[in-house]
Design a protein around this nucleic acid. Sequence first.
DNA 1: TTGTATGCGTTATCAT
DNA 2: ATGATAACGCATACAA
Lengths: 332, 332
Amino acid sequence: MSKTSIIEVSKLAGVSPATVSRVTNNAAPVKEATRIKVLAAMEELDYRPNTAAQSLSSKRSNNLGMVVSHLDGPFYGPVMSGVEATLRKYNKHVIIASGFGEEKSEKEAVDFLLSRQVDGLILLTEGLDSEYLEQLSKKIPIYLINQHIDGLESRNMWLDNDDGAYWATRYLIDQGHTQIVCLGGQEYKQDANERIAGYERAMQEAGLAITDQHIIRTEFEVHGGLQAMQQLLDSGLEYTAIVAGNDEIAFGVYEWAARNNRRIPEDISIIGFDDILMSNYISPRLTTMHFPQFDMAKVCANMAYQEIYNKKPPGGVKFKTSLVIRDSVRKI
Amino acid sequence: MSKTSIIEVSKLAGVSPATVSRVTNNAAPVKEATRIKVLAAMEELDYRPNTAAQSLSSKRSNNLGMVVSHLDGPFYGPVMSGVEATLRKYNKHVIIASGFGEEKSEKEAVDFLLSRQVDGLILLTEGLDSEYLEQLSKKIPIYLINQHIDGLESRNMWLDNDDGAYWATRYLIDQGHTQIVCLGGQEYKQDANERIAGYERAMQEAGLAITDQHIIRTEFEVHGGLQAMQQLLDSGLEYTAIVAGNDEIAFGVYEWAARNNRRIPEDISIIGFDDILMSNYISPRLTTMHFPQFDMAKVCANMAYQEIYNKKPPGGVKFKTSLVIRDSVRKI
DNA sequence: TTGTATGCGTTATCAT
DNA sequence: ATGATAACGCATACAA
C-alpha cells in the first residue's frame, strides 16, 4: 500500500514534480519527449494521484453531489446511472445522497454534500422550493432535473409534459376513443398540471367536451390510481379510455380492473406516462409515453461538467417524450 | 465562499488549532470549558472542516466505495439506500459506481474507486470471482453482499437461500399442493443452486417425488420465466404450483398465463423469491419470500464502519427470508 | 489538558 | 518548456 507519490515519479523520470503534475492534468504544454518519459515512469510505478492532495491544492473536489428523493423507486435508477456513467468518463464522480422524499431530509442531504466540498449539485428533488434553490445557486452551481425554476432556466433539464400528455391523448383519440378521462396528479405538482393541460388541449382540439368529472386528481401512486377509479365509478361518468398521470397511477387502474372484473384493453383502454421499467413487465404491457430519463441525466451531467470544469456556459434543455405503443389500448 | 479554516476558529476561541481539531474529532480528551468555547466559535463562524485536508493529513478519505451491478434494476435501490443512510449517520459517505453487469466494467469500477482512495469497498457484484476478490481483499477491506466466498466469511452478508426456498415450497405443500415445479436460475449462480436445493429438500421431506422435469433452469429474468413455462408445457408435466427462483421469473409466469388464458391463482399457484417492489403492485399480488435487502445493507455498512474506523473485528452475518403471503397461491 | 511543529501530496506562482 | 517553492487545511507526534 505504500502509495507512490509524485516525487518518486519525478525522480524516476528525471524531471520536477511540477512537470509530472503537468502531464497528469495535460493542461499545460509539455514537450512530447518528456511527456513520454513521465508517462513511462507513472506506468512503472503504478502511480495514482492522491485525490485529497489534488483537492486541497486545487480547491476542487472533483466530485459532484446529487440528491434524489429516493434511491429506490422505479424512477431514479436510470437517472443515477446516466449521471454516474457520464461523470466517470471524465474522471469525476458523483456522490449520491437520498432525500427520503422529505423537504427537511433533502435539505440535510444538500448540507451534507456541501460539507463534502462538492463542486456542483445535481438535484432531482421534490421538496425544495424555488426560493431555497435560488439562494443555494448563489453558493454553488446547481443543476435541476425535472424541475423548472424561473431564473435558473439555463441549468434546467425538463420534460415537455404538456406535449407528452397531448400526444398521449391524441393517440387515444386516433384509436377512435371519444370518452376519455384523465387521472392526473395533485395540484401542487408542476408536472401534474402540465400533463393535465396537455390532455385538455388535445380534447378541445378534437372537439371533445370535458367536464369537471373528466379530470380526477390523485397521488402519483398505485393506491392513488385505485382511489381515482373508485371516484370515477361513483361519478357515473361513462368512458372507454384513460390518460394516466403516470405509470403508477396506471398500475392502480390495472389493480382496480382486476378486482372489479374489467379487462384491459377490452373494457378499458389506458395509456401511462413515464415508461418505468415495470410498464413493460406488467400484463398487458402498458402503452405509455417514454420519459428519456437516461438521456436527460447524461445531458445534465455533461452540462455540469462542461460548465464547472471547462467554463462552458450552460443552456437548459427541454426534452420530449415519445410514444411507446404496447398492449393496453384497443382500437375502437 | 471564503471558507473559514481551523486557524480562524482557534483564534476566536483563544486556543490552538490542535485543540480545535481535537474537539471536531472528539477523540482526544478536552476540558469541557474549552470544548464549549471551541464549539461556540465553530458555530459562529459556521466552520466546516475541509474534507480534503482531513483526508490528506489523516490518510483516510472517509469514503467507502460501493459497486453494484446495476444502478437501476429493482433489486439494488434498497441496498444503496440502506448503505447511504447508515454511513451518512456516521458522517462517512459512499461513492457508488455501476458495474453495468459485466466483469470488465465491474473491475473498472473497482479501480476507479481505488483511485479515489476509498477506505473500504462494499461489493454487490455478479462478475467478480473469488480469486480476484481474495487478491483485492489484501489491498483493502472488502465487504460482500449476497456473495459467499471461502476465506472472506467474516465480511460476508448473505442470505440463507436454501432455507428460503425450503419454506417457500413448504408453504405450497401446506396449502395442499403436491404437484410443484421449480423454475430456478442458472447453474453458475450460487444462489440459484441453493434455492433449488431448498426446494428439493422440502419436496423430499414431504415424500413428494420429483423428476428432472420438475426443475427447469432459466435466466433470472421475465423472459426467462416465459421460456421456462414453454418448456414446462412441452414436457407435458402436470402441476398445480410453481416455486419461482426469483420474482422476475414469476412475472414471466404471469405474462405466460395472461397470454395462454390461465388464471393465477385459480389455475396456477406461484410463489416468488426476493419481494421486489413490483411484487406488491402486480395483479394478483405475488406471494413471495422477502429478501431483507435494506437490513442487510445497513448491517453491512455498520460492520464496515466499525471495522474500518473503530477497529472492531467483523463477523459475517447470514440472513433469513420471511414469507410474505399475498394473493398468488390458492389453497387446495 | 494543551500548544508547537511537521508532514500529508499536489497545484500554482513565479522564475528561468 | 521546465524547475523551485510556497501554499492548501488539517492531524498528529512530541513537548510542555
